[in-house]
Amino acid sequence: MAAAADVTFQRNILIKAAFGSAALIALALAVFLGGHVIAQQIISGLMLGAIYLIVAVAFTLTIGVLNFLNFTIPSLFMLTGMIAWALLKSGLLSFSGSWSWLIALFGGVVVATVASLLVERFTYRYFKAKHGDATEHAIPLVSSLGFLLIFENLVILAFGSESQRFPVPFKADLHLFGLVIGIPQIVSLVSALIVVAALSYVLKQTKIGRALRTIAENPEIASLLGVEVTQVVPVLFLLTGMLCGLAAALFTVNYGDVSPFMGDNIGTKAIAGMVLGGIGSIWGAIIGGLIVGLTETMSVHFLGGDSVEMVIWGLLLIVIIVAPRGLFGHAALGKGKL
């Protein structure tokens, strides 16, 4: 039994290593054949992927622990950007001088986190209290669709539906071997990786992480073992709000545009990345997010702008049907994840 598990484990490592090196070789080959243009595309793809992967991690956390596809995530993303823009525009932050953009983004993240906790109160906690278990059916999913509508349209009512310019404070580009790399882009990729590494550590090593993994395994047994499920689950939504807020802040600094619909596209692409990598796996979400980012820039480059949706969703449909576990997914959702 243990030996069999060991063999599977080794095979998994081998598959991952093979996959990783194949990807690296493919990228190197692409750069070798395509030169600077392709290298530039790859860099842009990875930067875009960095934003997708943070949102994908947020999705995979809620779905992995609670079996709940949280559709409010796109609206949390959008809330961060729009609130930050509104704060900056209102002039409340003029005291802080040249750092006001950062404080505005921080304010946006706080609002998104509070909104996420509000969602927890009315989806998970409510149904837990009423039905004893909120993870087995679509009710939280439907409620979260309701919250998506509420948040998005309240923002439209408050700030209008146009896309707004968020003044980016630094415009420094790095020129490296003839490639243009934006400093915000580097910051976003690096901070995405740091945050996700920190999250992995928290899940693996800390008490709260163990509690979350126990709930992922089985909420009832978790509470029998002394995990205060009703107190631990809000932490998950706190993390979701903060991850979405971080992704949105990076996106806003990178692209300098906010709109009430900015979350929709990012959210659906992040779902695609999560499924590609395997639902419930953090490393899967990271790899999947990067793949979606790369696929997007590559299909824009080779096939034209309107092909992106078709390519990504076609890929996803094939993955769901042929290998529903994704690249790093586990056999049963709700078992042995994270």
Binding site: I271, V275, I279, M310, G314, L317, I320, L333
Partner: peptide, 14 residues
């Protein structure tokens, strides 16, 4: 379950 929701969603997108 969730996979079916996502598969049908992906189908509509395609």
């Amino acid at each position: 379950g969730v996979y079916m929701v996502l598969a049908t969603f992906a189908f509509a997108q395609v």
